[in-house]
Design a protein around this nucleic acid. Structure first.
Lengths: 356, 356
DNA sequence: ATGAAAGCGCTAACAA
DNA sequence: TTGTTAGCGCTTTCAT
């Protein structure tokens, strides 16, 4: 008889087996069961067999929370600043693939707005994950140093010099340079830069990176430098939001301007695809307004999109981030800084301007 | 002095404050602190002030694991069968938005292959989440009934009759019918169906839904029924994998066939976009081979893609799923079944066949 | 209004 | 090789 049977309208919830239940069923001690499930040293063949049979019979699954109280959670946390951005999905996919062969489970703490990065990171810390991989360009380095003092951390897409955590990033400088050289070589002079949303929010510990070492600040800086070197007036527009549609909305007025740009360098591919939405929506093509992006997300290679973009090897970035994190959990304490080489994928979205 | 200072190469990890530290700092009992952080009844204004100051000073954050041992985790789990599918991202985005105004934190258990659904679900159970939302078409209903007996569950995209869990799904039958009627009306007769990967894997508790009540089985059945009613020979091809590129690979041979189909009904939009990749890659357009999909993912409305698709209101599905889950956590025990109405978004990817 | 103390399920140090 | 036991950080009666 279940002693937690329903009383009135209260829902019956069966109690799942605990390690004590397994121990009783197998006629051994809790410690013995614990050793079996952890593959620890000092269990006879007979003991193992009996215990495993009981585990199977009772469908026993150790509670992660109880394990956490005594040690590790075998959980790794991934924080990505925007669910739905395919570059971030790729990193998550790579991490999931790599971890499939390990005892670690990945959990993703999703946020809708990069500004909430610290909240998501804190929630992972509160859950005592064994390690954290984060794409959080806007969180302050000091805060991260503090975080990394509590739990192993690998940051993606940052170029910090921290000694507390590892970084894996694409070569943003080289990538942006290749884009600018490509556009200039095609004959473009009126080149606009489509930047991420940098509007600030009130409150909270996080703040806009003041270092200028986040990917988007670097890409924009390279843009400014190239325009300056050529004596061309820069034109930066900011998307208000992080979705593809937000980028399109920001580009529409650009296209209506009297002397509209002949090329747009978008800070990342979601923005670039949005820019293409505006360009195509206005009945224009690459000869009118070329568009180049960054990340080389899967849709960029689609023949109907054919977006020129900087491939920064997102899958490899995710894979290496996990590898570094596992190393760090394994005991490494010196910081590693990885910069992935980039390749410009030239496609149909960039072409010589019609009037050149 | 930190009594856990580094010894040799061992990394120093600062011990985070516990409820006891806060209690000591404020000169009160642990119970008092607990009451303050839970906003429980019976704390004087003075007590609250003192405790909150100590919490602030020590940067105290309650450990979720310890709370779980005594009650709830204030964590909800979302399982999605494929990271990188924009329909699933939309559901995750909706869930994140709704939960932002609640004390619950969402964690996503990502998988790469729908067949691993039960592993991800089990991992959420092991973490004692307070509720689960899952998009898991292939997990058996019995297993889910069992799961739902342990934790509140809302399933997305299932049309089960279970009394143990709620379901939220689009109207797959109506959606598929609208697609078929649209294609037939345009004059198509050689219509192919591009199905999801149904190859089986060995082992594990999950198995292919034998009920035929999962969305893709329904969409395919409707396709068969319409083709049969018109006396047309059905042609079903299966993608080997779940990525857009896998769909393109499956479609390429179709296009090379002597009497190729004039239209392709893809089981979901990622497959449809892949089909468009193959069609455009072969230098064909909608007059040669029309393509229609299901889900109306954001890229479908992009003018360069312009994919005809069934809008099943993914965002609303995610929102309602969370709402139902919170209701269930709040005590509701009777099962709710929601079917979201669908709308066919007719766009440029479907057109009358050239030779009609 | 406040505090003392039991106990959630597990691991690890130690004893047998 | 196996079992006993302390204790992780919190919530929750139950006294005071």
């Amino acid at each position: 008889m279940d002693d937690r049977s329903s009383h009135g309208a209260v829902l019956t919830r069966r109690r799942a087996a605990t390690i004590q239940d397994v121990a009783d069923a197998a006629g051994v001690s809790r410690a013995a069961v614990s050793k079996v499930i952890r593959n620890a040293y000092g269990v006879s063949e007979q003991m193992r067999t009996r215990v495993e049979a009981a585990i199977e019979r009772l469908d026993y699954h150790p509670r992660v929370a109880a394990r956490v109280m005594r040690g590790s959670s075998f959980t790794l946390g991934l924080e990505i600043p925007q669910i739905g951005n395919d570059f971030h999905s790729t990193i998550a996919a790579a991490a999931t693939d790599v971890l499939a062969a390990t005892p670690y489970q990945l959990v993703i703490a999703p946020i809708r707005d990069p500004q909430q990065g610290d909240r998501a990171l804190q929630s992972l810390v509160d859950r005592q994950v064994d390690g954290i991989i984060a794409v959080a360009p806007l969180v302050s380095g000091d805060w991260l140093d503090d975080l990394a003092g509590r739990v192993p951390v690998v940051m993606v897409g940052r170029h910090d010099e921290s000694t507390e955590y590892d970084t894996v990033a694409g070569d943003d400088e080289a990538g942006a340079e290749q884009v600018m050289e490509h556009l200039v070589e095609l004959g473009h002079r009126r080149i606009a830069f489509l930047d991420v949303d940098r509007s600030r929010r009130a409150g909270g510990k996080p703040f806009i990176s003041p270092t200028g070492r986040d990917p988007h600040s670097i890409r924009r800086r390279v843009y400014y430098e190239h325009m300056g070197a050529l004596g061309l007036p820069p034109l930066v527009v900011e998307a208000h939001g992080h979705m593809e549609e937000d980028a399109a909305a920001a580009v529409v007025p650009l296209l209506a301007a009297p002397s509209r740009p002949t090329a747009i360098f978008a800070g990342h591919d979601m923005l670039a695809v949005g820019a293409l939405r505006a360009v195509a929506g206005a009945g224009l093509d690459a000869r009118d307004v070329s568009v180049a992006g960054f990340d080389d997300i899967p849709i960029a290679s689609h023949p109907l999109i054919s977006l020129t973009s900087v491939d920064q090897q997102g899958y490899a970035i995710g894979r290496e981030a996990v590898r570094l994190l596992l190393e760090r959990i394994g005991g490494r304490t010196d910081a590693v800084r990885m910069v992935m080489p980039v390749t410009l994928r030239v496609r149909g979205s960039t072409a010589p301007p019609r009037d050149s």
